[in-house]
Amino acid sequence: MTQAATPQTPARATQATGSLTAKDIVLLAVFGVITFIVMMAVAMVCSFSTDMVWWTHAIGSIPAGIVWTYLMARVPKRGAAFIAGAVMAILGFVMGMAWTGPVGILAGSALCELVMIAGKRAKWTIPVGFAVLIVCWWFGQLALILFAGQAYVDMIVEMGMTAEYGQGLVNWVYSPAFPICAVVTFAAACLGGVLGLKIFKKHFAKIAA
């Protein structure tokens, strides 16, 4: 039994720490797109209300966290989180997201990667790293309001929405709900990652074998 188990250990280490292959990059791109689509689908629903729009990331991160966890388990290599996040940042930019959003996604993916490296890619680093990514994404999208202040309302009107809607977004950012939403968003993203780990263990364990 000991002799049979010994040769497998280096193989697993190579899988976790080896260089990314072309197949890995394709998987990262595809599932990065899927993660982004899940978040955007939730955003479309939540955007109808100024009271709900900034909770988009908390709600969307639960199903998106399952997708992300599968991806990180499927490609357990250094750089995987950053590349997948970069794909999402590019998509956001191409789709017309305000520049602070893609910057938040990119910064979050870099921090996610650092969390996973510091934790030696232990299982807990997947949900925690994902939560860091989502909070940075969330903050990036509302940072424009913090920078622009009341001028943001004029930007909203130019985009074809009402001044009341824009003012509602500004008022929300400066309300007590702001720090509460940050904490809830982090917790919800962790929950999504934990659910992903449970689902992965039950249905996809053979992939890591």
Rank of each mutant, 00 (worst) to 15 (best):
V128M: 10
V194S: 01
M155R: 14
I105K: 13
V128L: 13
I199M: 15
M159G: 13
V194F: 05
A163F: 08
Y174F: 08
G196D: 09
P176M: 02
A118I: 11
Y165V: 06
F186D: 02
V183T: 10
C190E: 05
A182G: 13
K198D: 05
A151T: 13
I117C: 06
M116H: 04
T185N: 08
L191A: 11
K202H: 12
G193H: 00
L133I: 05
I105W: 11
L195K: 04
A122G: 12
Y165D: 09
C112A: 13
L142E: 15
S109A: 15
A182W: 14
C190N: 10
K198N: 09
K120P: 11
G119V: 02
P127N: 06
Q167F: 02
G101A: 13
M161C: 10
L106D: 09
T162Q: 10
G129Q: 05
I156A: 11
L114A: 11
E158W: 12
K202L: 08
L142C: 12
R121Q: 12
G196R: 05
M159E: 15
Y174I: 00
F178V: 00
I134R: 01
G166L: 10
A151M: 14
W124C: 02
I180R: 02
M159A: 14
D154R: 07
W137T: 01
V183M: 05
M116Y: 02
Q141G: 10
G168C: 03
A118P: 06
P102N: 05
T125K: 00
Y152R: 00
Y152I: 01
V115E: 03
M161H: 15
V170S: 10
L111I: 12
A148H: 08
E113D: 12
I117E: 07
A151E: 15
A187N: 03
